[in-house]
Design a protein around this nucleic acid. Sequence first.
DNA 1: GCTGAAAAGCGTGCGTT
DNA 2: AACGCACGCTTTTCAGC
Lengths: 172, 172
Amino acid sequence: MGIANLDALDEQILKLIADNARIPFLEVARACHVSGAAIHQRIQKLTRLGVLKGSQYVLDPERIGYETCAYVGLFLKDPSDFDRVVEELRNIPEVVECHYTTGDYDMFIKIYARNNHHMLSIIHDKLQPLGLQRSETIISFHEAINRQMPIPEIKNKKGSTENMDVEVEEEE
Amino acid sequence: MGIANLDALDEQILKLIADNARIPFLEVARACHVSGAAIHQRIQKLTRLGVLKGSQYVLDPERIGYETCAYVGLFLKDPSDFDRVVEELRNIPEVVECHYTTGDYDMFIKIYARNNHHMLSIIHDKLQPLGLQRSETIISFHEAINRQMPIPEIKNKKGSTENMDVEVEEEE
DNA sequence: GCTGAAAAGCGTGCGTT
DNA sequence: AACGCACGCTTTTCAGC
């Protein structure tokens, strides 16, 4: 599973749909000067390749009742327990991200909670029993930026002899 | 600002669309036993209220060439510089999140990079000149969980005594 | 892999309740 | 606030290249 072999049309499609999942494919087609069917096929291909993993509406956490967001670094009692702990974290819906990390922490997670009290109860009552040595909490007061990763520029077209390193260089 | 005043229909709509931005509104309508026009109005309302902030396709970072993801805690030389630094971070597209935090760090950001070398160059050449005292990097080896926050259960229906059991029936 | 065409399905505005 | 309807546009499929 590595880098997908994308061409300039794929790139253009991704740039158009990444931040607007409701855009009509025909509108994408007109922007790309190809048929609607071509866009339809490409999006199926990108999905089959795993480049696209679905679509989402972006929700405002505060407006649906999440006052508090935190990152928590976990130290496990038994660091070979990774897989079990991840499975248990999946059952805690307020845990929205979980990373295996280098360095300080064994694991690093992101949590949404209704308020500080709720956050504390998640950490004490749900995380602690999973077998933590200890944890470190970073409370986020305000999320000033939250956006998609940039879609890299494709330089080489598919037929080229070189394999695709997706190299990104700024150009306009 | 604050928690939007949502009812059970809003909740059901959010649950249906949150992880599937391409679902036809008419399909949502059928699941909710209301008209398509009602869903259309509700989604406009939720957008106007700021509960919905747009839609996205979910991309696989690795398949578009991002091998490396890191969280970086920033210590600013001049902590009153928050706003300027955020604006400069907006110009670095690889920075996808930026939080104001309590405790250890002044600021906490998430970065995608093509590889370790690219990550280092972002941190040294782009972040350091913004006026950092120092920074701490947490490399993510693997993102085991990445999902939406849960849609809270709505308890009281808006100004009504009526009970609401809304059943969603699977159908083809 | 892309195209155009055709059929089925959807989004959206409006008048009504 | 929700409904039904109607129009135009979109999605999806398929034969043909």
